[in-house]
């Protein structure tokens, strides 16, 4: 069976999400590696007998790796992200190392949140958080939407749910 037989989502996130992720992830990565290098390293060197140059290289590598990861992943994640409606289904496809394809019937969604953090507002972005009934993995997010787009999506979901007769 050729994969073409199954429908795929086609819509992409806003391109602005890449700089947003770069700033957000990059900042936390820099903070974490900075703390490890300038605070953790002297402390370890002072109080841990096993500290050696080899360990120092490992730590440096880890710090650089963390920063590199934060810089490299956003474009890849953006390239992978797809979403879209197929009739009554919301389809998502995302992930780099672990690729997920998710299909959720709109009428099974319990409620929809529209979240905008301070940094997201600065970039003019919004995240849609959708909850279905259930415990684990019952909520999922669609990040990097323009505000109008997010509102439209939300209204679409609410409307589809509103069709129902009591």
């Amino acid at each position: 069976m050729e994969p073409a037989a199954t429908p795929r989502p086609t819509e992409r996130l806003q391109r602005r999400v890449v700089p947003y992720w770069l700033v957000a992830d990059g900042f936390s990565a820099l903070l974490l590696s900075g703390l490890a290098w300038y605070l953790g390293r002297p402390l370890l060197a002072k109080y841990w007998d096993g500290w050696s140059d080899a360990w120092e290289h490992v730590l440096l590598g880890a710090c650089l790796g963390l920063v590199a990861l934060a810089v490299l992943t956003p474009p890849l994640a953006y390239a992978r992200w797809r979403f879209g409606f197929l009739g009554d289904l919301l389809l998502l496809r995302y992930g780099i190392l672990f690729v997920e394809e998710r299909a959720v019937p709109v009428r099974r969604m319990q409620h929809v949140d529209l979240v905008r953090g301070p940094l997201e507002r600065l970039f003019g972005l919004a995240t849609l958080v959708v909850f279905t009934a259930g415990n684990e993995g019952s909520a999922f997010r669609v990040p990097g939407l323009a505000l109008a787009q997010a509102q439209e999506l939300r209204d679409h979901i609410v409307e589809a749910r509103g069709d129902r007769r009591p």
Binding site: G95, L97, F98, E101, R102, A103, V104, G134, S138
Partner: peptide, 14 residues
Amino acid sequence: KVQAVVVRQGPFAQ
């Protein structure tokens, strides 16, 4: 009764 379906690929699976 299904609420959602997910197809997931880990690195080896890819």
